Amino acid sequence: MITLGRIGRYGFLLLVAAVSLFPLMWMVLSAFKPGGDVIARPFAFDFDQLSWTNFREMVHTIPIGTGLRNTMIVVLVKGALTLLCCPMAGYAFAKFDFAFKRALFGTVLTTLMLPTLVLLIPLLLEMSELGWVNTFPALILPGAVDAFGVFWMRQIIAEIPDELLDAARVDGAGELRIFRSVVLPVIRPGLAALGVLTFINVYNDFVWPVVAVNDTGHQTLQVMLSGLARAAVVGQLGDAASAWGQLLAASTVAAVPVLIVFVLLQRHLIRGVMAGSVKG
């Protein structure tokens, strides 16, 4: 039955959705507008004049293909390390008793409270000593075993009944077999959610890549976008209107992978968040 209250709730949700989606839709449509119209008529759209000009000029301005390739390499390798190590660490903290367990877990949680800027100089000095500056290991290894991922997995695995694990041990299964055959299938929603969150965080990361890498061959997409925005602001690209059109085109290209991942995996993200919202 349709009631006035339900109509009001749905109307409010539609309003919130429209406000949230408007900047994204404006960016995408403006990327296809002529450069002059982006500044002269920012909120006017003539669909007869939409073209791919900004995208063609953007390709010649920055090596966006290289940026996408570098970003995907970092996302895939770093994400794989996160999804491999964090569940194993979470399993150990949730289901094993060992010396200094609480102290170690408390130390892991403490790292969550450290601002990223505090770690930049020590990490950069470490990468320099290892000779990894301007390399993929510098982009991938720091933060691959994320404290939030360990905490997330620990909270989810803690809800698995000990009787289920004990039954597997009685049947002669070793701990690795139990982890692979019993724990992983149970925590699959939470693991999928961690994968989505890791993808978004690594894909959007800017601060560490801009510090660790300064050559174009290893720059990630976010660093290239920042360079393009800086060039547009200071007028290094000549025509200001064309520069902002290229920036909107590059931003649209950069948003596509995140949107695809979210649309395809939003159900797993919601299920994983619900699975992780438990007391451990």
Score class of each variant (00 low, 15 high):
residue 208 W to R: 09
residue 154 R to E: 09
residue 207 V to K: 05
residue 169 R to S: 14
residue 169 R to V: 11
residue 177 R to S: 11
residue 139 L to C: 15
residue 181 S to G: 10
residue 159 E to A: 01
residue 175 E to M: 07
residue 207 V to E: 11
residue 154 R to G: 07
residue 144 A to Y: 05
residue 195 G to P: 06
residue 184 L to H: 11
residue 150 V to K: 00
residue 164 L to E: 10
residue 172 G to H: 04
residue 209 P to G: 09
residue 153 M to D: 02
residue 151 F to C: 03
residue 157 I to C: 02
residue 168 A to I: 02
residue 182 V to Q: 13
residue 196 V to K: 10
residue 180 R to P: 06
residue 190 G to V: 02
residue 142 P to M: 07
residue 191 L to E: 00
residue 166 D to E: 15
residue 209 P to D: 09
residue 133 V to D: 03
residue 200 I to K: 10
residue 172 G to D: 00
residue 137 P to K: 00
residue 136 F to M: 12
residue 152 W to V: 14
residue 202 V to D: 14
residue 194 L to N: 09
residue 161 P to S: 09
residue 189 P to I: 00
residue 190 G to I: 01
residue 190 G to F: 00
residue 176 L to W: 15
residue 207 V to M: 14
residue 177 R to Q: 13
residue 210 V to P: 01
residue 198 T to E: 03
residue 144 A to D: 10
residue 211 V to M: 11
residue 193 A to F: 12
residue 188 R to H: 13
residue 137 P to H: 05
residue 188 R to W: 14
residue 183 V to S: 05
residue 158 A to P: 06
residue 196 V to N: 07
residue 137 P to I: 10
residue 174 G to H: 08
residue 180 R to C: 12
residue 202 V to M: 14
residue 151 F to Q: 00
residue 166 D to P: 03
residue 154 R to C: 05
residue 156 I to Q: 07
residue 155 Q to T: 02
residue 182 V to P: 04
residue 170 V to E: 05
residue 147 A to Q: 13
residue 195 G to H: 01
residue 195 G to I: 03
residue 150 V to H: 04
residue 201 N to I: 06
residue 158 A to S: 14
residue 192 A to T: 11
residue 153 M to A: 03
residue 177 R to T: 12
residue 199 F to D: 07
residue 207 V to S: 09
residue 178 I to F: 04
residue 211 V to R: 08
residue 155 Q to A: 01
residue 148 F to S: 15
residue 133 V to K: 08
residue 165 L to S: 01
residue 179 F to G: 02
residue 187 I to M: 13
residue 158 A to Y: 01
residue 167 A to W: 08
residue 158 A to M: 09
residue 136 F to R: 13
residue 176 L to E: 04
residue 156 I to R: 02
residue 191 L to H: 00
residue 144 A to C: 07
residue 195 G to V: 05
residue 170 V to Y: 03
residue 174 G to Y: 09
residue 173 A to S: 14
residue 133 V to C: 06
residue 166 D to M: 10
residue 154 R to V: 05
residue 163 E to H: 08
residue 209 P to T: 10
residue 193 A to N: 13
residue 182 V to L: 11
residue 147 A to R: 08
residue 190 G to D: 02
residue 159 E to G: 00
residue 148 F to C: 04
residue 186 V to S: 11
residue 155 Q to W: 02
residue 164 L to Q: 13
residue 187 I to P: 00
residue 167 A to K: 01
residue 155 Q to C: 06
residue 194 L to R: 09
residue 204 N to W: 08
residue 188 R to K: 15
residue 160 I to T: 07
residue 207 V to H: 06
residue 151 F to H: 00
residue 194 L to S: 08
residue 192 A to L: 10
residue 197 L to Q: 05
residue 183 V to K: 02
residue 199 F to G: 03
residue 196 V to E: 08
residue 209 P to S: 10
residue 152 W to C: 12
residue 197 L to S: 05
residue 209 P to K: 03
residue 170 V to N: 06
residue 163 E to G: 08
residue 156 I to H: 02
residue 193 A to T: 13
residue 171 D to N: 08
